[in-house]
Design a protein around this nucleic acid. Structure first.
Length: 376
RNA sequence: GGGCGAAUUCCAGAGCGGCCAAAUGGGGCAGACUGUAAAUCUGCUGUCUUUCGACUUCGGAGGUUCGAAUCCUUCUUCGCCCA
């Protein structure tokens, strides 16, 4: 994998680049749709490519390990073959599940003992095991196994957690380097910066992560309960240290505004469940603001979902019709909203990229931010 | 023509003398959602009031009672059964 820096914004740390993988080139900044179980919820492959223009999607180690399981994935020849998406993919390690499954998991130095949320069965994830699983899944980018503490964690907890994540990272790299890809193309391992909202911890973590000289680096443990300003501050602290000749991935973020703020601070890759989950729940993101599609005000609005929207389907359906679908609990509602939101997120990243290349990112961003947060 | 049963807040449907503005579900209205245990969850849903609270409701009318959605009389409507 190779990152090629193309342009740097003169007034900020925003940058445009190309990330070359064995499954194709990714234009950065990029938004990566989340497909936890190997499927971007509600979006079929054809729409993912033609309407959304997805360049890379995510899968999740924990979820895919539980279902369909390693036997099936191995027999399929990896996740690309299994789900038919032949562009780049990235797998999250299950570190986020360590965070979100609090209560049915136990953390130790060795790893994390989970109870399956599906059947309650007991499983242990160690850094070594996670690497082995990610090899079987076969994503182009594998994420290190980390602990993601909440944004409200105490300094002491954050410090200990960071230490554990770093020790796990050494074990991840050791195993990663001892093993080979299973399907004939390369895989890269991205380490993850932690440190919660504490600048000195973030710096320390970024130094440690940078020392690994990985193909790309991730910033984790943000947008998990801390104020947005703290998040931006942490991104700045960390990006001063993470190498500029490697892509930077801000994990799990975020709102359209979060993404522009991240890009401005030098982030290249983003992922988030918001466009799909919130879409399924009736929220639409547009360049003019946020729409709660269930609201009564759209009942008789027969204008297109978004007249100048990023995908065909924005002009195919009207707001009144989409509102009707949500009220009738039609499956199609969530599908349309998911495709629309993803197409919008991809458009936003691509637009940011164009403005970075054109050299007017800062002014474009300044006029977009208030628009994007408007409640329609 | 005779007999029996039922009518409850937008709908369905509990309640059967005070703890009832009235369970529960649906519908409606609004909100939340950030590396997906989520096509999920939360709140409100008689009127007025910021709150406390006040007021008007349980087919219509009239009664019994300190007190009625709940008991009685009658009327209306709708079911079912017998002619």
């Amino acid at each position: 994998m190779k990152y090629q820096l193309q342009h740097t914004d003169p007034k900020s740390n925003a940058r445009a680049g190309l990330l070359h993988t064995d499954h194709g080139v990714i234009e950065t900044p990029i938004f990566m749709p989340v497909g936890t179980l190997g499927s971007v919820k509600g979006v079929q492959l054809r729409d993912l490519i033609e309407q959304v223009s997805a360049q890379i999607i995510l899968g999740n180690t924990y979820h895919l390990y539980l279902r369909p399981g390693l036997e099936v994935l191995k027999a399929a020849g990896g996740l690309h073959k299994f789900n038919g998406f032949d562009k780049p993919m990235l797998t999250d390690s299950g570190g986020f599940q360590v965070f979100s499954l609090t209560g049915i998991r136990k953390l130790t130095e060795e790893g994390c003992e989970f109870r399956s949320h599906i059947d309650g069965s007991k499983h242990i994830f160690t850094p070594e095991k996670v690497m082995d699983i990610e090899r079987v899944i076969g994503a182009d980018i594998m994420m290190a196994f980390d602990e993601c503490p909440p944004g409200t964690a105490s300094y002491q907890y954050a410090k200990e957690s960071m230490g554990l994540t770093h020790r796990w990272l050494d074990r991840c790299f050791k195993r990663f380097n001892e093993t080979e890809p299973l399907y004939g193309y390369n895989q890269s391992l991205f380490p993850i910066v932690q440190g919660c909202v504490y600048p000195d911890l973030r710096r320390q973590s970024a130094e440690f992560i940078a020392s690994k000289e990985a193909d790309g680096n991730a910033i984790g443990g943000l947008a998990v309960g801390e104020p947005a300003e703290k998040m931006y501050e942490m991104i700045e602290v960390v990006n001063e240290i993470l190498p500029g000749d490697k892509p930077r991935y801000l994990m799990g973020v975020g709102t359209p505004v979060n993404i522009l703020e991240g890009i401005e601070r030098g982030v290249d890759m983003f992922d988030c469940v918001m466009p799909t989950r919130n879409g399924r729940n009736g929220m639409l993101f547009t360049k003019d603001g946020i729409i709660n599609m269930r609201n009564k005000k759209w009942e008789l609005d027969f204008s297109p979902i978004e007249a100048d929207g990023a995908c065909e389907l924005d002009r195919t359906y009207t707001k009144a019709y989409l509102r009707h679908l949500f009220h009738a609990k039609e499956l199609l509602a969530g599908q349309i909203a998911s495709i629309h939101n993803l197409a919008f997120y991809l458009w936003l990243a691509q637009e940011a990229r164009q403005h970075i290349i054109a050299g007017d990112f800062a002014s474009w961003k300044a006029q977009m931010v208030p628009r994007l947060s408007t409640r329609l």
